[in-house]
Design a binder for these strands. Structure first.
Lengths: 153, 153
DNA sequence: GGCTATTGTTCAGTGCACCAACGAATTGCG
DNA sequence: CGCAATTCGTTGGTGCACTGAACAATAGCC
């Protein structure tokens, strides 16, 4: 015996949550564009001209993962990637016209999906839920690099 | 413009949460055994003799993923896998002595890790947080197969 | 008893995610 | 100026996760 109840383990719940989300995304938002891909696209719609490092910071993705995701997006013609003439190390990224179009279309669908996803909770609970997730995630991310005390707002 | 604030998207937060958890697990629990591997091991400590399907149901993992994880665990000698003589389709699984030992050791460490992970929240908030995650995950999982109304409690 | 259904496992393919190590470009220090 | 350290990107390796398809064994029905 001595087995443990996984439903009290936040890590296990987070995984379940993400899987359920993934499924819902596939059916309600897009089968081609994944949620991380949308996140990257979104960051570049907000700030065109970012390099990969910048994107990774915004969406909180590893450098090599960012490279993967960006590779897929550029291959699909949703992103432009050019070497920075000022600094030959970095690649400047911006959404193509098609990329912006896709982003717009998916934005409304993700909103609908989030509604469904959070449907079991009441209005107030949703806010609480998002707030708690954010606090835990923020704190855990700060554990890794005990860096700038920049105001998160 | 028209970009979206990802910190209000539960899917994105769930991903961040899981990543942060993964990192913490690696440093505080084990570098060899991953959290899904522990979940599988845990299910088999609780109910030795399950087949892969049963494990997948308990931990909420896809069949092919379960096969992968179990493959790794058996390769490391933590699990025994034998064909059911009564039903040649299924593989009966049980933890080895070493598997039980590892499970015991990791159990105490995961408890410590969960403390750290949830440290930013107060006692009451933790309970709320876990409860909300569970409700959302349960509901989303029910969306896929609208099945038994079995009492979850 | 024999053929079809169903059930359990496996395999191939894609994508996310991490780390460690490397190469290329730039920065900064002596 | 020149070389070391840093920074950005890529590559290779491992693991999780899903889908869809193939396969094998059993179960069920006529």
């Amino acid at each position: 015996m001595a087995a443990v109840d996984l439903s009290t383990h936040p890590g296990h719940l987070a995984r379940r949550l993400q899987q359920a989300h993934h499924l819902l995304w596939n059916t309600m938002v897009s089968e081609e564009i994944t949620s991380p891909q949308f996140a990257v696209l979104n960051a570049l719609v907000a700030e065109p001209g970012l390099d990969q490092r910048g994107v990774g910071e915004r969406v909180l993705l590893d450098r090599s993962t960012v490279a993967d995701v960006i590779g897929r997006l550029t291959r699909r013609g949703l992103l432009d990637k050019v070497r920075d003439p000022q600094d030959g190390r970095r690649a400047l990224l911006r959404p193509t016209a098609e990329g912006k179009r896709v982003h717009r279309r998916l934005t409304t669908r993700t909103a609908r999906m989030n509604q469904v996803f959070l449907a079991p909770l009441g209005d107030e609970e949703r806010a609480v839920f998002l707030g708690l997730m954010r606090r835990v995630a923020d704190a855990a991310e700060r554990l890794r690099d005990p860096l700038a005390e920049t105001v998160t707002r």
